[in-house]
């Protein structure tokens, strides 16, 4: 019994060894010639992870290589980002990341990386944020919220998925512009925060449009250029007289120092993925939109946002 099992596993083992050896030998001129790794700096199963896996699949098909996903979670995404930054820039390590660990975290505290530690390949997604209210809230418009908050400073509360996240900074910016005082209640992710809003334990929450429409939460404003799909009745902040936008966005990056031909190949593949119907449909089911920017535009946008948020963080005294 043991003997046959042993033989069988040995045979498989040898087969595996031979296979991997040939694969190494076949490593020829064409890129990519071996499986690639995609690092995702958030735990398996979250929105970023699901987005990343969808991208990995499509990217793998376009490039004709296997893209293996590894989750490297912790520290609000910074642990994974640090690993990406110090990986070999051989074109075989890429990452799908949301903007917060790129444009917020390095401004909040000292980290072993910053926005300059990466090569930007393309921006892939963006979902506009919506200011949702608790179910029995009396507020119908952004103006009513602003008026009430002005009359009763420090009375209303708003939740975020954590300190230093994009919704947190967006909300702080809003409060700063409008000169309002609200209580900030940070949660550990959207799930507990939105639940608290549904139970009426907090008054306001900045969430993506899908969350709001699926959970049937009332909302007062969409922070987007135009009205968003799924919530056609919800006026944008601009329509209500407040010119403010806020969204969750991110894209494909790699450690800095890619060979130009690798970067070009990746950028081209990334573009193919971004415009494909399958990718659009998949992102839509996850409640976010395809928002393509090419390598240069993506890099510029990251740097602009990083500078903006750095000023905001300094002004609000959020840095550690």
């Amino acid at each position: 019994m043991i003997n046959t099992t042993f033989k069988r596993s040995l045979r498989t083992l040898i087969a595996g060894l031979v296979l991997s050896a040939t694969a190494t030998l076949a490593q020829a001129e064409s890129y990519p010639s071996r499986p690639m790794t995609m690092v995702i700096p958030f735990p398996a199963g979250g929105v970023t992870d699901t987005l990343g896996r969808a991208t990995a699949r499509q990217l793998g098909e376009v490039l004709g290589a296997n893209v293996v996903v590894t989750n490297k979670q912790g520290g609000a995404g910074t642990i994974g980002m640090a690993q990406i930054a110090k990986s070999k820039a051989d074109g075989y390590t890429v990452a799908v990341v949301p903007a917060a660990p790129l444009v917020n975290q390095p401004n909040l505290r000292r980290l072993p990386y910053d926005a300059d530690s990466f090569d930007y390949i393309c921006q892939l997604f963006s979902s506009p944020l919506v200011l949702a209210t608790k179910p029995d809230s009396p507020f119908r418009t952004l103006n009513e919220v602003v008026d009430y908050a002005r009359a009763h400073p420090g009375e209303l509360s708003y939740g975020t998925p954590g300190p230093g996240t994009l919704p947190h900074l967006a909300m702080e910016q809003l409060l700063d512009v409008l000169d309002l005082q609200l209580r900030h209640v940070p949660f550990t992710g959207d799930a507990p925060g939105v639940t608290a809003l549904m139970g009426g334990h907090i008054d306001l929450y900045l969430a993506t449009g899908t969350v709001v429409s699926e959970k049937e939460l009332p909302a007062v404003a969409a922070f987007a250029d135009s009205r968003i799909e799924g919530l056609p009745d919800l006026a944008t902040a601009t329509e209500q007289g407040y010119e403010l936008n806020a969204d969750l966005w991110g894209g494909l990056i790699a450690p800095r120092g890619l060979a130009p031909e690798h970067k070009a190949r990746l950028a081209e593949a990334c573009h193919t993925v971004a415009v494909s119907e399958a990718f659009r449909a998949q992102l839509k089911s996850l409640g976010t939109n395809v928002a393509y920017r090419d390598a240069e535009a993506f890099q510029d946008y990251v740097h602009t946002m990083s500078a903006t948020n750095a000023r905001l963080i300094n002004k609000l005294g959020l840095a550690q």
Binding site: G45, G46, T195, M198, K215, S285, L286
Partner: peptide
């Protein structure tokens, strides 16, 4: 019934169901 995952495991389940 709420679309709110109770733990990381159901968060993954939720993602899988959404797909």
């Amino acid at each position: 019934s709420l679309g709110v995952p109770g733990d990381p495991v159901t968060a993954v389940m939720l993602g899988a169901l959404t797909i």
